[in-house]
Computed example of a mutant assay.
Amino acid sequence: MDSSSGSIEAGPKVRHSGSREAIIEAAGRLFLERGFGFVSMDELAEAAGVARRTLYNQFATKEDIFREMLRRVSGQLENAVPSGIEPHGDVEDVLRVIAHAILELHRHPEYCGFLRMVVADSRQFPWIAEEFAAVMEPQTERLVHYLAHLTARDILDCRNPVLAAHQFMGMLNEISLWPWMIGRESIPFAAEDVVDETVRTFLQRYRRPQSKGN
């Protein structure tokens, strides 16, 4: 009897380590397919292959699952605009690093799927957009501060660093993110070409002309 009881206990323990990942994966799939508001916790448990009790042991609500997904997206964003770039490096080299990191982020299906879900559900659930913006805005602010820093050093001439930062990201989004968001293939350009033209276009507008003595 004790032995049988022990075997029963062993099952959930073996699955416990993977149950959280299975739930997150199932949530991403179902939220994207049907929308956040049209997926129940019971359906999530079934799709994840876990018991209802296991689901609630991991997450009390769907909102908690969303926030865990958001936390993971935030971790990916940390690498998109490195926090220590502001005072270092040649501007062209730094912008290339940032551009490549953003394009690499767009290659993660979980990030793009999550973004599509936010767009689809934020009208019905405004808090989704608010929480997503709270994660996105600090990442954009890093680029804004970098551009403002170089403007103060007379390397760039960004009178509105916020606008300039969004212009830079917008050139990249137009090529590799938005086509995917509307269900089309990304425009088939090599990443290096996209980065090269984006940086050159941006600097042609915003790099401050150097004096002849430099």
Results as ranks from 00 to 15, higher is better:
L32F: 11
R71T: 11
G84A: 03
M41A: 06
L70Y: 13
R208Y: 00
V81M: 06
S3K: 05
R15C: 03
G37F: 05
R96Q: 12
G75H: 09
P87D: 06
H100L: 05
A10V: 13
A80I: 08
E46Y: 08
H108L: 10
G75E: 13
I155K: 12
S122M: 14
S5D: 13
N160A: 10
M1C: 02
R107T: 14
G35R: 04
Q139G: 00
V81D: 04
I182E: 03
L30Q: 08
P209Q: 10
Y56N: 05
D90V: 01
V50I: 11
Y111G: 03
H166I: 01
A51C: 08
R116A: 14
V91W: 07
A148S: 02
G49M: 07
T61S: 15
L156K: 12
R52N: 14
D2T: 10
L163S: 15
A80E: 09
V73H: 04
R184A: 15
G170Q: 05
G75K: 08
Q124N: 10
I128P: 04
A51V: 07
F132D: 08
H16S: 11
V39D: 00
P138Q: 07
V194L: 03
V135F: 00
F202S: 01
E46G: 07
D64V: 13
L95C: 08
E92G: 03
S4M: 11
F202N: 06
Q210C: 09
A47D: 04
A80D: 04
E9P: 07
I8A: 11
G75F: 02
P12V: 07
L70Q: 12
E131H: 12
D157C: 01
Y206Q: 01
D193E: 04
V14S: 11
T54V: 14
D2H: 09
E131C: 00
I85D: 07
L163Y: 07
G84T: 05
E86H: 08
M1V: 10
E92Q: 14
P138M: 10
F59V: 09
L163W: 13
G49Q: 04
L55Q: 14
L147F: 04
Y146D: 01
P179G: 05
R116N: 01
F189K: 09
R15A: 06
I187T: 12
I24A: 13
V119M: 03
L32H: 14
K13L: 04
F114M: 06
G89W: 01
V194Q: 03
Q76H: 13
E192Y: 02
S5K: 12
L203S: 12
M69A: 15
E185A: 12
V195H: 06
V199W: 04
